[in-house]
Design a protein around this nucleic acid. Structure first.
Lengths: 112, 112
DNA sequence: CATATACATCAGCGCGGATTGACACACTCC
DNA sequence: GGAGTGTGTCAATCCGCGCTGATGTATATG
């Protein structure tokens, strides 16, 4: 572990008045992704729309839990829901690619 | 909310044998960023190395907590630590830009 | 109408992770 | 050596978040 000491001051001169960066947006988005079920949902929806029971079966989670996580992703605007035309009991979800791209950009802004 | 129904099958045909995507890596990275203190640390370190007391003061957190979060970021390889040459009591942290870029790529892979 | 299916919502509980408070370690200066 | 400073570590506690179990809503079928 050797930091390039050249950028450090000759003597330790800690600044105690530095501003706190605003990270509420990326932190909120990261919290959404930091759950295996929600992340699995977003990953599955890359291959196109899926109904709730499909995702619940693939992820090994109960339907109501998947529904809860989908609600959080919906509130964040990352996914959209729509009932099937032929049988409106089935709700198909798809990603909002623009919102997902914006989220990726926000997270990228923190790490890059 | 209107999904482009054209991609949906005419009749609802749920597939219950879809594979569960592996999202362990992005989920773990997101969990790291999903904390305001750790995200604030990563944001502050974009402007160059900082010692622990600087970041604790700026973030309004106690020094030992910041130390804990820095340890987690260290274990993940996102930051490096090095003692100051003139006064080795001060530990300066800096980002591992390669690791941060890799993390950004992993998260981007989920959202894009 | 009644029944069945697919999904949504809710109170309650349990567990993991962050904070607290105290202490240990490393280093500098006297 | 001893005192002071900056940082790291750890048990105990607190607290938010997801899961469970049950119930509610919407739609389809007979």
């Amino acid at each position: 572990m050797s930091a390039r000491g050249s950028v450090l001051p000759i003597l330790p001169t800690p600044r105690l008045d530095l501003p706190a960066p605003d990270v509420t947006a990326p932190v909120g988005l990261a919290a959404l992704i930091a759950d295996p079920t929600r992340a699995g949902i977003l990953a599955m929806l890359r291959s196109g729309p899926h109904c709730v029971c499909e995702m619940a079966a693939a992820l090994g989670e109960r339907q109501n839990n998947v529904s809860m996580h989908l609600a959080r992703l919906r509130d964040a605007g990352l996914v959209r829901a729509s009932r099937h035309d032929a049988d409106a009991r089935w709700v198909y979800y798809e990603r909002d690619e623009e919102a997902c791209a914006a989220a990726a950009t926000a997270l990228d802004g923190l790490l890059r």
